[in-house]
Amino acid sequence: MSSTPALLVLEDGRSFHGEAFGARGETFGEAVFNTGMTGYQETLTDPSYHRQVVVMTAPHVGNTGVNDEDPESGKIWVAGYVVRDPARVPSNWRSARPLDEELAAQGVVGISGIDTRALTRHLRERGAMRAGISTTETDPAALLARVRDAAPMAGQELADQVTTKEAYVVPAQGEKRFTVAALDLGIKAMTPQRLAERGVEVHVLPATATLEDVLAVQPDGLFYSNGPGDPAATTHQVELLQQALGRGVPYFGICFGNQLFGRALGFDTYKLTYGHRGINQPVLDRTTGKVEVTAHNHGFAVDAPRDGTPTVTPYGAAAVSHVCLNDDVVEGLELRGPDGELRAFSVQYHPEAAAGPHDAAYLFDRFVTLMESRTGSTTGGN
Rank of each mutant, 00 (worst) to 15 (best):
D100W: 07
S112K: 13
R117G: 15
G376Q: 06
S48V: 11
E42A: 01
S377M: 00
S48Q: 12
A105K: 13
E102D: 03
L99R: 09
Q242G: 14
G356F: 06
E125L: 15
H50A: 11
A31Q: 06
V54K: 02
H298V: 09
D160Y: 12
R194A: 03
R124P: 10
D85R: 07
T64M: 13
A105Y: 11
A23R: 09
L265T: 08
E201R: 12
A301N: 07
F256I: 00
D220Q: 04
T369L: 01
E125Q: 15
Q259N: 14
Q173P: 05
G316P: 10
Q348F: 00
A58N: 14
G174C: 01
V204A: 12
V83D: 03
E166F: 01
P171R: 04
L211S: 09
Y270P: 08
D303Y: 10
T273R: 12
F367E: 01
L260Y: 11
Q161M: 11
K271Y: 07
G29R: 07
K271N: 04
M153S: 14
T208V: 11
P192F: 02
K188F: 08
P314W: 09
P171V: 05
V54M: 03
F223A: 15
D303F: 09
T235V: 15
T208K: 13
D46A: 13
L215S: 11
A23S: 10
G332D: 15
H122A: 06
